[in-house]
Nucleic acid binder design. Structure first.
Lengths: 195, 195, 195, 195
DNA sequence: TATGAATGAGTCTTCATTCAT
DNA sequence: GATGAATGAAGACTCATTCAT
């Protein structure tokens, strides 16, 4: 049924989605369980199945919520970005900010890696693929605009390579004793953009 | 405790590790459960907790076993490879064979993606990192040798890029409706090596 | 796995089967639930899934247990039955005893009707059909023997009719305010055997 | 409370009853649930508890509705039936049509068996018995008239036997791997009417 | 040394019913 | 009069782990 249209219902529904998104980002897909979500949202267990026919449905909502939130942030960032030539380092920071999210201090490595854990886990959840494609396409759009505003015209093939390079750098960073995926990606991008 | 010193004990322990490795490769970490491993090894359920204090311990052994097996295969492959100039396509196939494992027919996409699921899952199991680093370094060595034997001298930075490119291509392939990660990686490599 | 081979395990397994059979006979298929069975057998809830992979499996065991018990009783009854010509009324009682079970005082109507509730519920559980067929065939054998020992040779078609008549009489008795299915069946049989 | 006196209320109440009757006939008692009924009637979930104090109450109304509908159909059929001698096969078809309902193609076996599931379930709902008695008596009347119009005068005892025979044949058909209760009943009737 | 047996805690999901509005 | 929202109780089932033997 997927109920809720009144303000109150909508609020509770939203609370569940947010709780689920938090769990997803902090601890991965496996942490998004009825019990955990309900507890975090401080709502009864059965409210989770009242608002969402299945756990999958809730997961989709959580992924979408998180993805949209990130895109909004990315777009805002972009909107505030003056159009002007840019030093390579500052450009790379902008790119990484879009692709890996904002730098988050101590937990940066963890959060970045969780991002890829999420991405890979998508494979097991084919129903997420359309959503992920949409979000991915929008992200790519933002990325292109970053370059345009920096006075650089990148051909699409280079953009694909750039993204793959960052993603590959991150998953490779995993095996380090003390991984710093953002730094590895930065180095990689540097070599790619200014060889 | 982690028993097993008798030959018989050692044999059973090994059988469990192999069973766990198979499950890991075929169906991912979540599939490595006491019951499943014991059944596949055709041993009693409690032998799994008898020979390994916890499931994690068994998982580690399985990862190591699998990694070593793959490196051995890679080395053998290389040993059989004549030193001679090589067409780009055949070179790329060799590279992908080393990085993604041998092509496995119908389930190729699945198995390749499971490989990255495994890689990313490493993040949750820091104790796997040293092992993964060792295995990764050896893999890189094999890869370099593939190029050398093909009459190409690649500088280490290019090798890093190449690996990242493949890894990034694969994890990005995930969001396709019907992912074919090997094909995506192949295309990417082509553009990289013969732009 | 459906464990249990040791005496103790076998005893617990048997306790579950008996508890399930009781529930089945007293309150119908719907009453055979994990919780109810475990409570009646005074065993932990998860023992039900330990000994039986699924509830269906337990139900099958319960049906078989009950059916076999009844057949054994029927066979014993028969064994004690002298071979000799028999008055129609006493013959009919024997037949009803085989087909409807022994007369059970106050609850006779209820227990007889539950028997048919069970029979009809079989329709929803196709996996029970082979078993029911086997039990039914054995019951028919006992019934034939009752006639033989009474000096009557019935052709198979008449036996089928006789059984259908009893079954039909019983299910028709259901709509009485105060049903007495055994009496209705008796009257029907009388008209059939001594028209 | 059991509301509904306004025309609109009456209409909605009726819609619920019809929806419940359909579910009852198509999928049995267990399928008559608040949600399912409301959805099929395209009315809000809580209208089911608003118009009927409990689910049982709704079930009773559904049974009555369905029974009456069937009798009306039977009476119409009969009204259209010319009084004339009739071949045994065509007579049997008429009888089965009255007793088992019209033949319903692929799902015939299922629907016939559901009819007996319903009959037997009556046992658990004593308040349905008076209704079922009335409906049963009327059905018997229709059946007698079928014979009369076919030029056959059956004494009441034979009619009882005939009905029991059909009912018994049907419930016995249940244990077949692929039950065809109508065929079994037809064969039984044939042997009974033309031995 | 080995293992069959056992189970508590937890998984998702369904549903009749209540109640505030 | 009507209903959207809500939930407690129960359903089947899974599994890592413990323990007595």
């Amino acid at each position: 049924m997927t109920a809720a249209s009144t303000p109150k219902g909508e609020r509770r529904r939203q609370a569940l989605v947010e709780a689920a998104a938090e769990l997803l980002v902090e601890r991965g897909f496996d942490a998004v369980r009825h019990r955990a979500v309900a507890e975090r949202a401080d709502l009864p267990l059965s409210s989770t199945t009242y608002y969402f026919d299945s756990l999958d449905e809730l997961v989709v909502a959580a992924v979408e919520h998180h993805g949209r939130t990130e895109l909004v942030r990315g777009a805002e960032l972009l909107a505030a970005l003056p159009t002007q030539p840019r030093a390579i380092d500052s450009l790379i920071d902008l790119v990484l900010d879009q692709l890996l999210g904002p730098h988050s201090g101590d937990r940066d490595a963890e959060l970045v890696l969780l991002r890829y854990e999420r991405l890979v886990a998508t494979f097991r959840r084919p129903y997420l693929r359309p959503l992920m494609r949409t979000l991915g396409a929008e992200l790519r759009g933002l990325l292109l605009e970053v370059f345009t505003r920096s006075g650089i015209e990148l051909d699409p093939r280079r953009v694909e390579q750039l993204i793959a390079l960052v993603d590959g750098a991150v998953v490779n960073a995993l095996i380090e004793i003390d991984p710093d995926p953002r730094a590895v990606a930065r180095r990689m991008l540097h070599e790619f953009l200014a060889p």
